[in-house]
Design a protein around this nucleic acid. Sequence first.
DNA 1: TAGGCCATCTGGTCCT
DNA 2: AGGACCAGATGGCCTA
Length: 205
Amino acid sequence: MYPKVICVPDALRRFSPTLRNRVNEAGDTSGDSRGQLPRKPATVTRDVSSVKNPKHRCEQSGQRGRRRTKANDRERHRMHNLNSALDALRSILPALPEDAKLTKIETLRFARNYIWALTETLRMADQHAHTQDYLASDLSSPASVLSAEWDSASPSECGYGTNADFSHRSSLTAVNEMSCRIFSGEESSAIPVTFCFKSLIWKTT
DNA sequence: TAGGCCATCTGGTCCT
DNA sequence: AGGACCAGATGGCCTA
């Protein structure tokens, strides 16, 4: 189903407690909260005269300049909306370890793979129900997936990838291997499927 | 210093 | 004409 596991060392850094502390110390909760300093205010425009690229040396006065400024504002607003949508997507994904924030591409990959994982869970639950009348509750509905619990698991338990896939990355950071068990309500009816947290992020199409 | 991620600016294209 | 969307370019910040 999934192709190869990709190695994203830079992204893994965000799971490091050390880096998380840096973020907290900076106190930056807006914009980029990945440990970088706050950006310039959105209303501050770039000094185009300092830009070397001729493309950026456009006339900023007169009607053309006003149109360009308005277009820039719209584009900024559009990108902010896009980022808000990404934040909304992050908010409904399972909690990350130590509040690490996924990058944009990681968020999209995680969401895609998480959807796949949920779909697989429902499919397996459905199969199980056919054989043992296992789940009387309506597991056929995605809304019935009430919670996701993270716990520790060895990479070999994940089912995707191999130990070798993770060993070199684990040496880079103090990342805990994470897995996700998806419940259908009561814990006693936990679907016997364990997903590897990192696999959901790193797996690509 | 290189590479990753990001915000922003910019001009082109398409649509209303 | 003006707005939305897109991709390229640029520079800042950060970590290894």
